[in-house]
Amino acid sequence: MGMKTDMRLIDDNGLRIDGRLPNQLRPIKMQVGVLKRADGSAYIEWGGNKIITAVYGPHEAYPKHMQDPNRAVVRARYNMASFSVDERKRPGPDRRSVELSKVISEALTSVIFGDKFPRTSIEVYIEVLQADAGTRVAGITAASLALADAGIPMRDIIVGCAAGKVDGVVVLDLNKEEDNYGEADVPMAILPRTGEIALLQMDGNMTYEELTAAMDMITEAAKKIHQMQVDTLKSKYRGDEDVE
């Protein structure tokens, strides 16, 4: 965010560098049940992002002091492959992934009926194989599919999506260049049925009007993404191809 460039991110026709309109999503492709060993799994391609997610559990939480006598503990781990970005990322958790794992865990906890599984843990693994901006929201979108695939009871299927500001224009679903050189980024995760907000972060420089315009865009796009999630889950049991 906020790096300087001479590049124009919005052209005279109001189009973005990848030709999209301000409120247009990148192409998204989802698939569930992609891993043999995991209790649930999902794969997502979102623009240039390639992210695979897996769910293990619920099973007895270990170490024991992690157990919650009233509910399941949801532990998400967001991890980027060293080769997922231009400049090699040192393998293992860094401060960014520690923070993202925390907020994603909290967001997923908000929809899971955890009180049905006291003293257990549910592990959610989000592996970013290729990164192209918006990995946390693509990751959480896939993670909630993997949770559904694992048969974890939930009150909704969370949808993640981001919006932001580039060249003074509020746009949906930032790509890598827009993320690097743009003026603001708002990653958000919604419960599509109720519109509740489970994850919300923001960095950059926005007025109240711009910020709410960005949140409006995300809310609108979330409906579309949610429909794809539902179609993807249904298609698994029909034996269809991936949903695009």
Partner: peptide, 10 residues
């Protein structure tokens, strides 16, 4: 101007 937001808890 709004510069940062962070939602937390479950």
């Amino acid at each position: 101007m709004i510069n940062a937001m962070q939602k937390g808890l479950r």
